[in-house]
Nucleic acid binder design. Structure first.
Length: 973
DNA sequence: TCGCACGCCTAC
DNA sequence: TAAGGTAGGCGTGCGA
């Protein structure tokens, strides 16, 4: 075990005596006398299967224990299981395989065995059995350990102890404090060859920037940058320059061993920086480099890894294990926890820190490296910032608190939280609870390849679409699925098999028959462990929230807030675990029972609200349920008054709650007024939780909250909803739409507003149909494979002009490429395929002839001819001269104005001059902004950030200025 | 032109 | 051997 003391010293504990094991159910008639025979047979089979192994004893022990399978309700409270203990953790799988396939035991014959808990990772097994959770405090009591004489690690303290002597503290009171982790944040720069993304096979590592911080402290204790070749000094950072790359690598290794960090962070370090360093060291034959972990003489190895789940998508990465140190890649963490349209460090920093970062294209890096100590200094400043930003993000998003709390709540090691999925967390809790109750978990194989089997989910009530000018009250079930599981005692161990119902002679008052037809016993017979887990999670959350209210210390608050969040997420994922057909322990009887109760409850609620709250019960109006999804109903009580709607909402929630089994509870939460219901899962409204003033505008499912719409659509719809719902200014909204459309068609749109992004969810060849982002990714791969988007990335694109009838997938293009080559975009596409339908959906309910008014007015006719000045296809067209006044083409090369505009020379000349001046000013302003972002006003801007809006505007201004200057030159004859 | 499958993303 | 669930809207391409 690795850890850190309260004083900040690293510890390695060599824990002795804990052995890997699993269970099988004992066959009828096997008694203690049969065990030796069984053991020798199994031992022989193991030896046969591992002929090359030098191991003497595979099976170290077999004992008969009294346990119960967690699967299905049983009257008998315990029966015999064999606990099979093996010599090494890796032997569990082989041994399990032999037993599952079947072995022939003398006198008993050929038998197959179902194994239990044979898929539990050894580390987790150890933690569960010793009551240790990720990130908690451990005591090695004085007198029970000895100082290691033969040092295996580089840790400051190293001790030997027997596992049974370890004392684990629950993370409460003084033990909820966070440890003073040492955190190393780093970033590397590599000098790629011209036009190539750096590859460790060819390209050197030229700089490594580092930031070392102690968790909870404001200032970093180390801030330095290691450079290849000289580098001018940087204020506030140590610059360490070296003549050879080998020295740079070794300097970094030395830093890591000296600092001895508990956590290593960075941006994309798992997929890029760490593997690059290791592969580069290999290439340079720096054999001593990859010893960065806490185990002496143990080398790092790289393994290709890929993670795929429906929730997180396919993510390919590399697995580098650094013993004793947690790797926390900010990219991974942010991809898992936040849905953003771009995950570049630049865009993420802008989003969370309000701070842009200079983005230097990899092709420029080599030039900076090959310059002088000043240009290398520039690069170093940039590199330092890339090491500094991940630390800022870690602090701002409170990742250490949230992840440590998640580890404590679920019991898994911190490293699992980024490397593994949701199910390991539930499994860990399930195993712990099972152990307390003497249950064992069967190792079931997922039925049928790919699962296939599925079950009916929740009801979504039909949406009575429209614009509602009366308050709409929302009634919600609090934690619906967890409360159903608790209310009806749904669990593996309470599920009654059809054939057992009669066998056990269970009376109707002892069981619950769920709406899906499954039967579970009531708690009086057997309390379910899932309900027990959920009760504890929700009670703990209540406590955490109460403590949070009391807490004054910001660090304590952070811990508690992280905890309540972890508890909520954990409670909600228990249901999903039971329904995961390709998971560890699926049980569709549980999950389909949960949803069937849910469906019944939402229907019941709708019926009750409408039956009770109407004029025949002496209410002033008839209530109407206009929509509802899974655990909520939207009620129009009929009153025009917000306060009254809230009162009715509370009354209804209370009345209806009383009709449900505890702890199921319907709550009144909020009122929407006004409310625009577009369809199922799509609506917008002003949200009120108190009668005085609305809280905010809330939108669900519509373009404003979707990542696959361009900013133009997002901004326009947001603005329109603002004008409609908040300002109540429909003509204003209409005018705004008209202006925007006119700007679009006149080519006055920033490219950054037109960028659409979509995720690449599978490898290129796995797609069945042709789509814009997939085809573009493929084209980009052909241009430059190293920088093209790959699986899991988001692909930004714009739609460009092309032949009539061209498919969208033929018209998608990389925004940078469009900018660099001056390719004209297709405004009509944006109008017809991006703007029109979302606009009509929100305007149709409130405006007669919305389509005619918005999409076919005079504003749609002011179309400008987009003539790219250079590049693109137009490069080959004969350059045409047009009139500086009205833009009609003119034949005479040296003319400026056409016949009609002649005589307006003075005025038009003035206009051209003014235009150049304005553009110069605009460009200057944007340039300064970019300079500020890169942290210096005295150097050229290098930034080429794909997702910085300023960048696009600066580029556009630069181009427009160039064109305006050309126009001006024409007057100089 | 229309229905359908695919793909993406969201609500809960 | 690693992977929480279903419902549902909507854009797009494709073939009937």
């Amino acid at each position: 075990m690795f850890g850190v003391t309260q004083e900040g010293n690293s510890v390695c504990g060599n824990v002795h005596g804990f052995e890997p094991y699993f269970y099988i159910s004992c066959l009828d008639g096997i008694g203690p006398d049969d065990v030796p025979k069984f053991r020798s047979t199994l031992e022989t089979r193991m030896r046969e299967a591992n002929r090359n192994s030098k191991t003497q004893n595979f099976i170290t022990k077999i004992e008969i224990v009294q346990k119960r399978s967690v699967m299905y309700y049983q009257v008998q409270k315990a029966r015999s299981f064999l606990k099979i203990v093996v010599a090494l953790p890796t032997m569990v799988a082989g041994c399990r395989g032999i037993l599952e396939k079947g072995i022939n035991i003398d006198g008993i014959g050929q038998r197959c065995f179902l194994t239990y808990e044979s898929n539990v990772l050894f580390a987790l097994r150890f933690m569960i059995d010793c009551d240790i959770v990720g990130g908690n405090w451990i005591e090695l009591p004085a007198g029970n350990y000895c100082k290691s004489t033969r040092r295996l690690s580089y840790c400051q303290l190293e001790l030997d102890i027997h596992y049974s002597k370890i004392v684990s503290y629950a993370p409460v009171g003084q033990y909820s404090k966070m440890a003073p982790f040492r955190i190393l944040s780093f970033d590397i720069e590599c000098a790629g060859r011209k036009g190539h993304f750096p590859e460790p096979e060819h390209d050197p590592v030229i700089q490594i920037a580092n930031l070392v911080t102690v968790q909870g402290e404001q200032r970093p204790m180390v801030k330095n940058v290691m450079t290849l070749k000289s580098c001018s000094p940087i204020v506030g950072a140590d610059v360490m320059s070296f003549d050879t790359e080998k020295e740079v690598l070794l300097a970094w290794r030395e830093l890591v061993t000296e600092v001895d960090p508990d956590i290593i962070i960075g941006y994309n370090i798992c997929k890029f920086d760490l593997p690059y360093l290791i592969e580069r060291a290999q290439k340079l034959n720096v054999v001593e480099f990859p010893m960065l972990g806490r185990i002496r003489n143990s080398r790092l190895r790289i393994k290709d890894a890929s993670f795929s789940s429906r929730q997180y998508g396919i993510r390919e990465s590399k697995e580098v294990t650094i013993e004793g140190r947690v790797q926390f890649d900010l990219l991974q963490a942010i991809q898992r926890d936040y849905k953003l349209s771009s995950y570049s460090l630049n865009s993420v920093s802008a989003h969370f820190l309000g701070e842009q970062k200079e983005d230097v294209h990899h092709s420029i890096i080599s030039d900076l490296q090959n310059g002088n100590s000043e240009t290398r200094r520039r690069l170093a400043v940039y590199c330092l910032k890339d090491a500094y930003l991940p630390q800022r993000l870690l602090d701002k998003l409170m990742f250490v608190y949230n992840y440590v709390e998640m580890a404590r709540v679920t019991g898994v090691p911190i490293s699992f939280l980024l490397a593994r999925g949701q199910s390991i967390k539930v499994l860990s809790q399930l195993l712990r609870k099972s152990k307390q109750r003497n249950f064992v978990l069967p190792n079931v194989k997922s039925q049928g390849a790919g699962g296939g089997e599925t079950f009916e989910g929740a009801t979504v009530l039909d949406a009575k679409a429209g614009y509602y000018d009366k308050p709409i009250a929302t009634l919600d079930f609090a934690s619906l699925y967890p409360s159903i599981m608790m209310a009806y005692n749904l669990c593996y161990c309470t599920l009654v098999r059809a054939e057992d119902l009669q066998k056990f002679m269970l009376g109707p008052e002892e069981v619950t028959k769920t709406p899906s037809g499954d039967v579970f016993v009531k708690p009086s017979l057997e309390k379910g462990i899932l309900p027990e887990i959920l009760e504890e999670l929700l009670a703990a959350r209540k406590r955490a929230k109460a403590d949070l209210k009391e807490a004054t210390d910001p660090l304590e608050k952070a811990v508690l807030d992280g905890r309540q969040l972890a508890l909520k997420v954990s409670a909600n994922s228990v249901y999903g675990f039971t329904g995961a057909t390709v998971g560890q322990l699926p049980c569709l009887e549980i999950s389909s029972s949960v949803t069937s109760f849910g469906r019944q409850m939402i229907d019941h609620t709708k019926k009750l609200v409408q039956e009770r709250f109407n004029t025949s019960n002496s209410y002033s109006y008839d209530a109407e349920v206009i929509y509802g999804d899974t655990d909520s109903v939207m009620v129009q009580f009929g009153t025009p008054d917000v306060d009254e709607a809230m009162k009715l909402g509370r009354e209804a929630a209370q009345q209806i709650s009383a009709t449900f089994t505890k702890p199921i509870k319907l709550e009144f939460e909020k009122v929407y007024w006004p409310y625009l219901l577009i369809s199922k899962k799509r609506y917008a409204g002003l949200l009120w939780t108190k009668p005085e003033k609305y809280d905010k505008m809330d939108t669900k499912g519509i373009e404003t909250v979707r990542r696959d719409n361009c900013l133009l659509v997002k901004n326009l719809i947001t603005e329109c909803l603002h004008k409609i719902l908040i300002d109540r200014d429909i003509p204003g909204a209409v005018q705004y739409v008209k202006n925007t459309i006119s700007d679009l068609l006149m080519n006055r749109m920033d490219l950054s507003l037109l960028v659409i992004t979509k995720g690449l969810t599978k490898a290129g060849d796995a797609y069945e149909s042709k789509t814009a982002h997939v085809e573009l990714a493929e084209r980009m791969r052909k241009r430059d494979a190293a920088t093209a988007p790959t699986v899991g990335d988001r692909v930004p694109y714009v739609i460009i002009k092309a032949a009539k009838g061209a498919k969208a997938y033929e018209k998608s293009e990389d925004p940078i490429y469009v900018l660099e080559n001056n390719i004209p975009i297709d405004p009509q596409y944006y109008l017809e395929n991006q703007l029109s339908k979302p606009l009509l959906r929100i305007f149709d309910p409130i405006l007669k002839n919305a389509s005619k008014e918005l999409l076919h007015g005079s504003h749609t006719r002011s179309v400008s001819i987009s003539t790219p000045s250079n590049g693109g296809i137009m490069k080959f067209a004969k350059k045409r001269v047009s009139c500086a006044g009205c833009r009609t083409p003119i034949s005479e090369e040296n003319q400026i104005l056409c016949k009609h505009c002649q005589g307006r020379e003075a005025e038009l000349y003035q206009k051209t001059v003014a235009n150049v001046r304005d553009l110069e000013q605009l460009f200057g302003r944007l340039w300064t902004q970019c300079q500020r972002c890169q942290g210096s006003l005295h150097q050229d801007v290098l930034c080429t950030s794909r997702d910085c809006p300023i960048f696009y505007r600066r580029k556009k201004a630069q181009k427009d200025l160039g064109e305006a200057e050309l126009q001006l030159e024409r007057w100089d004859f």
